[in-house]
Each structure stands twice: as structure tokens, then as C-alpha cells.
Design a protein around this nucleic acid. Structure first.
Length: 415
RNA sequence: GUGGCUGUAGCUCAAUUGGUUAGAGCGCCGGACUGUGGCUCCGGAGGUUGCGGGUUCAAUCCCCGUCAGCCACCCCA
């Protein structure tokens, strides 16, 4: 063994890259359908850009170093700061709402696990300059439509949505103060994964009394409709966003779930996550509204290629092959090779994918190779055929053969 | 960064209380098959048993370290 890629980094063999390209193509196609324009930025940014926003402790999770110009730099761990900078530079000129997407490769230095590497590609879709809940619905719909375009339905994936403004209101009416909120959010976020006694301890450590603790658990267990009903005014954006998704016919995918909080501190409104239905994997996508980050209403989501790729493989909805041959050409004898080359090139000129054996072997061997390449047909050229100005076209699926004049093959027979 | 589990051909796995040249299936290459693929049969290549050290007459097996993978925590791109 000559070693392997660094931990958390991937080699993409053809079958891997086929899947990745399939995912990218679907991302781009759905984003285009939603009227989003693609942008990109540098993979390397100043370290400061990330520490400013997220604090010094994030340095530990960054690929960062000092460059030859003595600058502290980092491989980008997320796209939002870059987007924020780009938008800020032209904020006056850009017509709102801005609808942009990007597919950056992101890096993060941490111990890898399944679905979580040190590098991944992540679709980012953002809308900037629009406060309406319809914008939130738009992004959620795009995420769901990507799933549908990839062959996944409501039985495969679920979108769980909440709203921090609603959570805040529900907790406030139960006596939770503003300063107690972060802990309450953290407990809600973990309420499905962490045992209740541990959660109680978290709350107790934060100075929660019995009443406040009960309030948090009560909110966590509120069903979707109950939450909307109890939330009053504060439930209105979430209500509208969900109604919009229902109007689009995507209601089956969506459920209101108050235990969705999302980790990032900058989210201010609707937050959501997309999971595989069994919740066996990590989140496929997650996003939300972050109005405070720019001086504009803004929202976005990220969808990584790693978990998504695993899910597609699990569900057997991966693309077959990256190339699809139109024909495999076979020279019976060495003296037939010029005709094979001539035909190969003529077909290629017409845009037909063609391969032939680069080393002369028996017809049997060449047919084996043709079959291994999944060519739909083989064109066999031998002395007898050439004599008659013909070639044998063998259908490799059916096993049938036909004699076809060479000049027909050269002039669009396979078009 | 912390803890637990696991590392044997490309892949999936074997290898009798530690016992001598580490095997099989699949895959790959070649032959039977010098003008017809998928089947069959035969042969071949491919391993410093993750790496390093220790115990022992002897280590794939036991011990330590290290690296890597998986899982949980942290964190959640």
C-alpha cells in the first residue's frame, strides 16, 4: 500500500465522482428552477473572518496556518461569511431579494465519523433582503425538490421545521427569561438524543427551578398544531411558511417539530432540518433565518454531499455509469484496423461515444471488453465484410446481428 | 480534544488451547476459444496479517505503543 488520502479527505474513483457529479447536477438544476444564480469565493480566507464571528474556540476546528506573507489564513469552514462580504460590497447595487447559490468545498479540522469528514461539498442557497415567510418556504421547497429530483419521497426524508421566535414566546409565557434561553434551546435541541435526567441536570446547573424545567419539557413535547395554537402572534411566520409548502403540494414532507433549534447562534427565526425518515443518518440539510448577521433580512441552508450520498446509496438511487458508449468497434484482423479507426473517428465526429481495443486480440476478447464496457452494440469489421463493403453490427443485449453497409455507418446510421 | 470497539489479498471472510511455506469465494490477468461476449473448466498475479516494540523455542492470535476506521461525547460546516 502506498498510503492513502489524509484522514477525512476523499479520493474520488470514477464511480464516486459519477455520484458526486449527479448530486451537483441535481443541485444546479433545482437551484436554476428556483431562479437562483451561482456564485463562488476563495477557498482560503483570513482566519480573522471566522474568529470574529464565532469566537476563538473555533480556531481549533479550522484548518488554519500562517502563509508566506505572514497572514493568518484558514480554509473556509462555511460559506456564509464569504457570502456576507460579497453581498455587503455591492449591497446598494443588487436588486433585492438576492437569490444566490454556491457549491463550495468546505473544510473542518475535527475527528471524522460516518457522514462527517474533514472536507465536503455543500450546496448553499441563500435569499437576502426578504423578510416574508414565503422566502423561508421557498428554501425549504427547494431542499425538498432536490430530494424528489434525486428519487426520494416522503417515505425517505422528512423536513422538520421550527421557529426560534415561537420557541422564545412559548418559553417566555412559561416564565423563562431571556438569559435562560440559550440553555433552554440547548436542551430542546438534545431532547431526543440525551436522557432526561442529564437534561434536567443541564437546566439545574443553569439555575432553573422545578417550574421552569417543566416548562421546557412541556414545550419540547408540544405537537405541531398545538405549538401553532399556543404561540399566538409569534406562530404566524411558521404558520405561513408551512401553509405555503402545503399549497405547493409538499406538505407530506413537512412536520413542525419544536425540538429543532440548530446549533448556530446566529439563527433568529424559522429553522429547519432535513433528515432521512429513519433518522439513522445525520441531517441531510439544515438552514434558517439569520436576520441579525447582515443589515438585511437573510436566510439560507446548507446541504452536504456526504450524508446525501450515503442515503442515495442506501436507497439504491445512484446513477449507473459516467459514460455510455454508442458502440464498441472490433477489428477481426490487424489489417482491418484502419477501417475501425476511420469508422471510430467518423462516429466520434457525430458525437457518438466509441471505444475499440487498443491492442489487437481475438474477436472473443474484444467482445468481452465490449460487454464489460456495457456497450449496447459491437461493430465487427473483417476481411469478408470489407470485401462486400459491409460491417456486422451485433446487438449485445439481444445477441442479434445485422450486416450494414459501411458508408451507412459512416453517415449517420447510429444518429 | 475525551472514551469504547475494530484492523488478515482490491472486496467479503477463514486460519484448530500461540505451532512451522497465512487459505477460500468474488474480482483482476491469462489459457482452453487463432471470426463471436455473458456459462464452464484450468492456470496466474496479488499479503512485510495497519505500523513499531515486547513476551515466547515459536505470534495473525497474548501485552504495550502508534496510526487508521467505526461508535459515543464535544461540535454541529
Amino acid at each position: 500500500m502506498q498510503g492513502k488520502a489524509l484522514p477525512g479527505f476523499r479520493d474520488f474513483y470514477p464511480e464516486d465522482l459519477t455520484l458526486r457529479n449527479h448530486i451537483f447536477a441535481t443541485w444546479r438544476s433545482v437551484a436554476a428552477r428556483y431562479g437562483f444564480e451561482e456564485y463562488d469565493g476563495p477557498p482560503l480566507e483570513s482566519l480573522e473572518m471566522y474568529t470574529q464571528k464565532s469566537g476563538e474556540e473555533i480556531v481549533q476546528q479550522l484548518y488554519s496556518f500562517r502563509d508566506k506573507g505572514d497572514r493568518e489564513v484558514a480554509l473556509r469552514p462555511e460559506m456564509t461569511p464569504t457570502l456576507a462580504r460579497m453581498v455587503a460590497a455591492r449591497v446598494q447595487a443588487l436588486k433585492k431579494p438576492i437569490r444566490w447559490f454556491s457549491i463550495p468545498q468546505l473544510f473542518r479540522y475535527e475527528r471524522q465519523q460516518r457522514g462527517r469528514l474533514r472536507e465536503h461539498f455543500q450546496l448553499n442557497m441563500d435569499i437576502i433582503g426578504e423578510a416574508s415567510p414565503l422566502a423561508d418556504a421557498e428554501l425549504m421547497a427547494a431542499a425538498v425538490d432536490i430530494m424528489r429530483a434525486l428519487g426520494l419521497g416522503p417515505q425517505d426524508v422528512r423536513l422538520r421545521v421550527s421557529d426560534r421566535r415561537l420557541l422564545k414566546a412559548l418559553l417566555a409565557t412559561r416564565g423563562i427569561t431571556e438569559t435562560q434561553l440559550p440553555v433552554a434551546f440547548a436542551v430542546l435541541d438534545r431532547s431526543e438524543r440525551v436522557p432526561k435526567n442529564v437534561l434536567e441536570e443541564m437546566l439545574r446547573d443553569a439555575g432553573y427551578g422545578k417550574r421552569e424545567m417543566d416548562a421546557v419539557f412541556q414545550v419540547a413535547s408540544l405537537p405541531g398544531e398545538g405549538a401553532l395554537g399556543a404561540g399566538g402572534e409569534a406562530a404566524e411566520p411558521l404558520r405561513q411558511a408551512v401553509a405555503a409548502l402545503e399549497a405547493m403540494g409538499l406538505g407530506e414532507f413537512v412536520s413542525i417539530d419544536l425540538t429543532v433549534v440548530r446549533g448556530l447562534a446566529y439563527y433568529t427565526g424559522i429553522v429547519w432540518e432535513l433528515f432521512d425518515a429513519q433518522k439513522a443518518l445525520r441531517a441531510i440539510a439544515g438552514g434558517g433565518r439569520y436576520d441579525a448577521l447582515l443589515n438585511l433580512p437573510a436566510l439560507g441552508f446548507g446541504m452536504g454531499d456526504v450524508v446525501l450520498g450515503e442515503l442515495l446509496k442506501e436507497r439504491g438511487v445512484t446513477p449507473k455509469a459516467s459514460i455510455e458508449l454508442g458502440a464498441f468497434l472490433i477489428a477481426v484482423g490487424g489489417e482491418d484496423m484502419p477501417w475501425v479507426l476511420k469508422l471510430a473517428h467518423a462516429l466520434r465526429e457525430r458525437g457518438i461515444a466509441v471505444e475499440y481495443g487498443l491492442r489487437h486480440t481475438g474477436v472473443r476478447k474484444q467482445l468481452e471488453l465490449a460487454a464489460a464496457r456495457a456497450a449496447p452494440r459491437a461493430v465487427i469489421i473483417g476481411p469478408e465484410e470489407r470485401q462486400a463493403g459491409l460491417a456486422v453490427v451485433r446487438d449485445l443485449k439481444a445477441g442479434t446481428e445485422a450486416k450494414v453497409p459501411l458508408d451507412k455507418l459512416l453517415n449517420g446510421y447510429f444518429d
